[in-house]
Simulated assay, not measured.
Amino acid sequence: MKKTVKFSVERTTQAEVEISIEVPEEFLDEDGEVCDDEGLRDWADENHNWTDQELIFEEITDTSVIEVLNAY
């Protein structure tokens, strides 16, 4: 039997952002080059001042059903 089903989904995306920011000195070597990618990544993740920037690339990597809301 054919039914109309309404459900909520969750999408996981991967995106790229390119911005100019002041990188804390703790992540730079004596030549001013980034020497701690992991630390800089964690710092950027905690300092969300970049989240409203325009994405230069975005790809949906996964879509899954969370909950069936209605079926009739």
Rank of each mutant, 00 (worst) to 15 (best):
K2F: 03
E59W: 06
V68D: 10
A44V: 15
Y72H: 08
S20Q: 14
T13C: 09
K6H: 07
N47V: 05
F57G: 12
E18C: 05
V23F: 05
T13N: 09
M1D: 09
E16V: 09
T13D: 04
Y72T: 08
D36R: 03
L28H: 07
E58L: 11
F57D: 15
E46N: 10
F27G: 01
R41L: 03
F7L: 13
V34S: 07
A15Q: 07
M1W: 03
E26T: 01
K6M: 07
P24E: 02
T4C: 09
F7E: 09
N70D: 13
E18N: 10
T12P: 09
R41C: 12
L69R: 01
I56A: 08
L55M: 15
K6T: 05
Q53N: 13
E18L: 07
R41A: 11
L69S: 00
N70Q: 12
H48D: 12
F7V: 09
W50N: 06
S64L: 05
E25M: 11
G32F: 05
K2R: 08
E46D: 14
R11P: 00
W50V: 04
E59I: 09
Y72S: 14
W43M: 00
G39F: 01
G32K: 12
L69I: 00
D45I: 04
V5P: 06
V65C: 11
V17S: 07
E59N: 14
A44L: 14
V5L: 07
M1E: 13
V5W: 02
E67T: 02
D31Q: 05
E54A: 14
K6P: 01
D31P: 01
S8Y: 03
Y72E: 15
E10K: 14
A71Q: 14
E16I: 12
A44N: 07
P24C: 04
E38L: 11
E16L: 11
F57I: 00
E33Y: 08
N47M: 00
C35W: 00
T61V: 15
L28S: 04
F27T: 06
A44G: 06
V17R: 03
E26F: 02
E25N: 15
K2G: 11
V23C: 10
E58A: 10
K3C: 14
L69Q: 01
V5G: 06
F27W: 06
C35I: 03
K2E: 09
A15R: 04
E46F: 03
L69H: 00
D45Y: 07
E54I: 12
E59D: 14
S64M: 04
N70T: 02
M1P: 05
T63W: 06
K2H: 08
A15H: 11
Y72N: 13
I66Y: 01
D36C: 02
E22N: 10
N49L: 10
C35L: 00
Q53M: 07
V9C: 04
E38Y: 14
V17T: 02
N47G: 00
V68C: 04
T4V: 10
C35A: 12
T63G: 03
R41M: 08
D45G: 05
H48E: 13
S20D: 14
P24F: 00
F7G: 08
R11T: 13
V23Y: 01
E58D: 15
E54T: 15
W50Y: 12
D45N: 10
D52F: 13
